Computed example of a mutant assay.
Amino acid sequence: MDAAYQHRKSGNCMNSTQAREAARVPPPNHGMHTVNPCPALAAIVRSFTIVETISERTSTLLPETGVLLGIRYSGSAALLRSSSPQEDLPDWSITGIRDSSRRICTSAGGGLIVVNLHETGASRLFAAPVLELYNVTASLRDWLPNPSFEGLQANLSHAHDNRSRIARIEDFLAAQKNTRPPDTMVEAAIRAMRAGRGNIAIARLAQHIGVSQDRFEKRFRREVGTSPKQYCSLLRLRFALNLYQPGRTLTDIAHAAGYYDQSHFIREFRAVTGEPPLKFLRRSQYW
């Protein structure tokens, strides 16, 4: 990493050697590692995930509860489909909240930084309505003003390790933040939904907040990019996956995660992944 960039005094994000070391960015070719964002971006970015592959690898990507930015600095990747030819993915991509998983094949020598945004993070970075990204993966170029995109490309071309790449991405995101304040009603609803692991009645939540259900759902979709019901379904599924361990029954997992019964859990799981839980969990590389 170039020392001049590492020691700059920007006043925004990781502007000291100590701060960068605290991120504990690993050396290359180490698989998958997560890095926390700098404090200035903590309300927008949940984490950075560095994904590096030595050999070709196929993984299943489960739906996230926020928008993802993918910035590829080496190799290539393709979306695999059972009923149509594979689709090459853009090196710089943005992916909205989805209702189903994706299978991605990454080439040998691949390197990618995934920016995992908080639920309302995209609406605080981009001018276009985040709901337009639902079930969509697009080129990041289409979502950024051309000078901004070209500036980030040029800046990253001078980065030679993951510490430097993340520092430059953080500076870019900090500069993209819009001045519109976050919707505190939606933020409060998200906290309640996460606390309940998705097991919460939407009508009752809207009543508690003090707005009609219709108004609440419109504001939620505008800020998050999906409906409150779909968001809660993703939270519940993610929690159920975290409960899985060999020997634990599906009935136990289903009840602990808040599903009505095992059949309800299997039905929702299959709708997202295309497979029953045990078959998926025993053979899939997923994240």
Score class of each variant (00 low, 15 high):
Arg141Tyr: 12
Ile266Lys: 09
Gly258Glu: 03
Leu112His: 07
Asp142Tyr: 12
His158Glu: 15
Asp171Gln: 15
Gly75Phe: 12
Leu69Ala: 12
Arg124Cys: 06
Gln207Trp: 03
Lys9Val: 01
Gly66Thr: 14
Ser148Met: 10
Arg248Met: 04
Ala138Ile: 02
Phe149Tyr: 14
Ala154Thr: 06
Pro28Leu: 11
Ile202Met: 10
Ile169Gly: 10
Leu243Glu: 09
Gly274Leu: 07
Leu237Cys: 08
Thr95His: 07
Glu150His: 07
Tyr5Ala: 02
Tyr286Lys: 01
Arg238Lys: 10
Pro181Met: 03
Ala77Val: 09
Glu217Lys: 07
Val35Gln: 08
Arg81Pro: 03
Leu281Glu: 13
Lys279Trp: 07
Thr251Lys: 11
Val45Ser: 05
Leu62Pro: 13
Ala201His: 09
Ser82Arg: 13
Arg194Ala: 02
Ala3His: 10
Leu112Trp: 12
Val211Cys: 13
Asp91Arg: 15
Gln176Lys: 15
Leu61Met: 14
Ala257Leu: 01
Ser212Leu: 06
Met1Thr: 00
Ala256His: 02
Leu133His: 01
Arg20Ser: 00
Gln207Phe: 06
Ser139Ile: 02
Leu133Tyr: 02
Ser123Tyr: 00
Thr226Asp: 01
Ser212Tyr: 04
Thr273Lys: 02
Ala201Thr: 03
Ile166Glu: 05
Glu170Ala: 10
Gly274Phe: 06
Ala108Val: 13
Ile190Gly: 08
Pro28Ala: 12
Ser16Ile: 03
Tyr259Trp: 02
Asp261Leu: 09
Ser164Phe: 08
Val51Asp: 10
Arg236Val: 01
Pro63Phe: 13
Arg204Ser: 15
Ala122Cys: 07
Leu133Gln: 01
Ala256Met: 08
Pro276Val: 08
Gly258Met: 07
Glu52Ile: 06
Arg197Val: 02
Cys13Ser: 06
Glu150Lys: 01
Val224Ile: 11
Arg221Tyr: 10
Asn178Cys: 10
Ala128Leu: 09
His264Trp: 06
Pro246Ile: 03
Leu237Pro: 08
Pro228Ile: 08
Val130Thr: 14
Ala189Pro: 05
Trp92His: 11
Arg8Asn: 04
Leu173Ala: 09
